[in-house]
Amino acid sequence: MEIVLYAVGALLLLALVCGAILGFASERFKVEGDPIVDQINALLPQTQCGQCGHPGCRPYAESIANGEAINRCPPGGQATINALADLLDVEAVPLDDEHGEEKPPMVAYIREDECIGCTKCIQACPVDAILGAAKQMHTVIVSECTGCDLCVEPCPVDCIDMVPLEVTTRNWKWDKPLAPDMIIATDRGGQTA
């Protein structure tokens, strides 16, 4: 009987000590904010285009953290979906067509002789990539443009085009060889490796 009491007492003591340590640790090493949202936000392309139905990338990151689908970001495309799936340990699903399709990287271009200098696009640009002043011609700083096309709609004279980012010898990359299911010559239908 005594032994049982000793055992219970020892366990109780152990529990108290461990509890105290855990309690101290939870206070001492408390993590401020919601790190998962930051992690998700870091994977999103930050175009702030709103195609996902949220007013920006961070709100979408917050909704993803709350269980929204991860396939609603067309600018990020499959690469972003894969990265999110990897981070959240969920199935990587194809992009939801409802929110748009994955396009090559685009950049806004203002046809400058048609610009009337209304500054509406400047106000619409989420990253301050448009330069200009009232009644002065506007222009896009290509290196800053995220290709979100938020400036296209407000333009009263329709002088903004979204053009694909030009491929140069600097950003060109090798193509992957043909997929393995194309290995049998007759499957390829005329294509060569």
């Binding site: 936000n41 870091a42 999103l44 392309p45 930050q46 175009t47 702030q48 920006g56 990338c57 690469a79 990287p105 989420p126 990253v127 301050d128 990539a129 800053e144 995220t146 950003n171 060109w172 990359k173 090798w174 992957k176």
Partner: peptide, 22 residues
């Protein structure tokens, strides 16, 4: 694969930069 990884890295850098600007 090297090209793809470089491109993704560039994209990531750009995203971070855009985020800062935003």
């Amino acid at each position: 694969s090297k090209g793809e990884i470089r491109q993704l890295q560039a994209k990531q850098q750009k995203a971070e930069y855009s985020k800062k600007r935003f």
